[in-house]
Amino acid sequence: MHKFLRQKKLLSKKFVAYSIVSLLALFSFLSLRIGYVNIDFFSAIMNGISGQKTTDTIILFELRLPRTLMCLIVGAGLGLAGAALQGYLRNPLAEPSIVGISSSAALGAVLCIGLGINTISFFYTPIFALSFAMVACLILIKLTQNTVSRHSVILIGVGISALSGSLTTLILSLSDNPFAINEIVFWMLGSVTDVSYFHVLLAGPMVLVGSVFLLRCASDLNLLSLGEETASSTGVNIGRLRLNILFGTALIVGGTTSVTGIVGFVGLVTPHMVRPFVNYEPKKTLIWTPPIAALLILVSDIAIRILPTTGEIKLGVLTALLGTPFFLYLIGQQRD
């Protein structure tokens, strides 16, 4: 299909870039329009601009706009982290939630809240999430240094996820919190409901800085497709590459998870969607994945609001529902 489109010159770089940007704009607009309450969209915008506070402006500017922004941040960030991990580990099954970085970040956040440290300053929650994500990332990098098989990378992730998942549950169960079960569900299955500008300002800069780290790896990931030794023999500084991956992934996953909980599989699925269109090149995959992943999360979050369910489905539930079958399909494709 894409071959046909390319032949017809319909897939020129510019055209694709414009289409993605237009789609992002279109769905951002829809994300602002669609919700449980019908608002008079345009008068809300006018009122908002002129500084009047009506119910509609509050819904639009204080509920829907930060939620939309958060979808873009979470999608782009986790998509980028997924593409970077797949490139670095040379493993099409890798992704922050599968290799255990997300659940470790969630554990950090829950520990911070459980110990009451977040009451000292809100900034401690993302800092804890970041630190724990970094530890998980470090373990992963250390254990995969002497090239292990593809499936063992996933098993390492299963180990880290199981450990941090049970510790998260333990902390929440032990805490004097009547809403412990709700909390567990929130952290395990992420959601962008009820995010505020504060959250956007917390996660946004972390994702941005993390993205700089990861995008700096782009060319090195191309060379890494022949393995670490060959990459090193062509001038890739493997030590520096690892540090970039470590900090970049931890910043993005720590930043987003501390605000939204674990949103899995977007980092797994999106690079695979992008690859056939960029000739499977790791660098191009890294660059084109974030906008597509942002689009995916945006559409998923709109779907959550449209679906006629009694309670709102969590974003993490929907991404997992869509992502897990694909993950299983990929495992079937592997020849180890």
């Binding site: 090239t147 060379l223 497709s225 393995g227 030794e229 690859r275 499977y280």
Partner: peptide, 24 residues
Amino acid sequence: WVPQDRELVWDIKVETLLQFTIEK
């Protein structure tokens, strides 16, 4: 260096593979 491990994960084009090295 020509490695013994010839497992290539990404199905890129032959010419692209060489181009990566030239760029670097």
